[in-house]
Design a protein around this nucleic acid. Structure first.
Lengths: 166, 166
DNA sequence: GGTGAAACGAATCTTTC
DNA sequence: GAAAGATTCGTTTCACC
């Protein structure tokens, strides 16, 4: 199933991170609006090296982006569904077509190529069960390469973070 | 951020969002560093109303936080595992204990209470298979309320976004 | 590698209309 | 909604450790 996806393109330069870089990342993961001066004060550094470290990590792709995190329930997208899919054909062409279509759906927040009985796990964010049904019928139902599908519903979110640095 | 210490409307303040609010959210979800002036120019507004709308959405909890999104593979956390867990006891006390312990693990990025044969899905972000084994033995293995566990490995990430506004 | 200070343009935020 | 002002921030540059 490896031929379904491109092996990653490393156009960004590699970089070695020390403890101070890690500390900066941890703080920015929690609050990207923290100023360089605040970061410098917390790390007992001056502003210049902090600024340079951030710039390098941005350039190297360590920091992919700065994002506002929106609460789904506040914008009428309260239902999260995990949708497991296995394909009929796993060839490069058929798999690529599936990927292209799946990624174009805004309801699909995440699409992971996984081990086990299914090929993909989708995380779908919609308003309610009716909206998920519509998504299933009108979008997934239009795809011709799906062998099997299974929906797992998220009843409550115990933990959800973007932090990967620890 | 000053609005973390707001004096008014601390409770579940509901808010009605119009098309302009939605447009602001969509832009900030992609680039939180976009300036208020840029946003104003894009929406054919002046800076003041854009500033006020953002402030209100921050206060109402629509915008939960501003975060730097870090690439896991660049910080030596290249392996993602979905870990499915069912408990022995589902009582409030036993479940609460499990939740408290699970959320304290930094490797656990996500913990979802789900429908189906398992109770929880964990998204675990670690360095490699060895680190996952260590996590399994030393952390999950120490929990006494686990009936069954199953690991699904993420082979590649097709799509990963935090965008929920569309 | 780092400090500390200084400076400019641009941003945020408050006030007033 | 707009406009203007005060304040703070990001950014670059410098001499120096």
């Amino acid at each position: 199933m490896n031929n379904l996806t491109n092996t990653k393109k490393d156009n960004a330069s590699d970089i070695t991170l020390d403890e101070k870089d890690i500390a900066i990342l941890q703080l920015l993961e929690e609050d990207a609006k923290m100023t360089i001066r605040d970061l410098a004060a917390r790390l007992n550094l001056s502003a210049t090296p902090v600024y340079e470290r951030i710039r390098k990590m941005e350039q190297a792709g360590v920091i992919r982006q700065y994002a506002a995190i929106v609460d789904p329930s506040k914008i009428d997208k309260a239902l999260t569904v995990l949708c497991y899919i296995s394909l009929k054909e796993h060839g490069k062409k058929a798999g690529g077509k599936f990927i292209k279509e799946i990624t174009s759906f805004p309801e699909v927040m995440e699409c992971l190529n996984i081990s086990g009985q299914f090929d993909f796990m989708l995380k779908v964010q919609v308003k309610d069960m009716y909206a998920y049904h519509e998504f299933n019928v009108n979008k997934l139902g239009e795809l011709d390469n799906i062998r099997h599908m299974e929906s797992v519903f998220v009843m409550s979110v115990i933990k959800a973070t973007h932090r990967v640095v620890y």
